[in-house]
């Protein structure tokens, strides 16, 4: 509905475009192809499992409970563009929990 990426592309999230004609996910920043839009765009990303303490700085000295999530309970899964390394999404998940297929558009309706 809001086409601000030009060239028939729809800006589905901050850095993720849908090329409506080819029905493929495309990086909004560098144009890198991220695979068919019928599938999860995350399958076209580079993925990294980050220890939450690297982002959420623990107290010094560390305590059992602090500003950081517990690294055995909670991991940060990061999704990068293989072209320009922009981070499309992060998921906070228990280790081993399936990756979320967060956007599944009805491609016939979206047009």
């Amino acid at each position: 509905m809001v086409t601000d990426s030009g060239a028939g592309r729809r800006r589905i999230t901050e850095a993720l475009d849908l090329d409506a004609s080819s029905r493929r996910w495309v990086c909004n920043r560098c144009g890198h192809d991220l695979g068919p839009a019928a599938r999860n765009y995350k399958e076209g990303c580079l993925v990294y499992d980050r220890d939450p303490r690297e982002i959420h700085v623990p107290f010094d000295p560390p305590t059992e409970f602090g500003f950081n999530p517990h690294p055995d309970w909670c991991r940060i899964v990061e999704f990068y563009c293989p072209g320009c390394a922009v981070m499309f999404d992060v998921e906070y998940l228990p280790p081993g929990h399936p990756i979320t297929h967060d956007i599944e558009l009805d491609l016939d309706a979206v047009g």
């Binding site: 602090g66 500003f67 950081n68 517990h70 309970w73 909670c74 999404d89 992060v90 906070y92």
Partner: peptide
């Protein structure tokens, strides 16, 4: 939210901190 923060971010933004007592 002490072991698992739920102050979620969006589209690549990180969450807010966990919550100790």
């Amino acid at each position: 939210g002490s072991r698992f923060t739920k102050n979620y971010g969006l589209f690549g933004g990180y969450s807010g901190a966990a919550q100790p007592r």
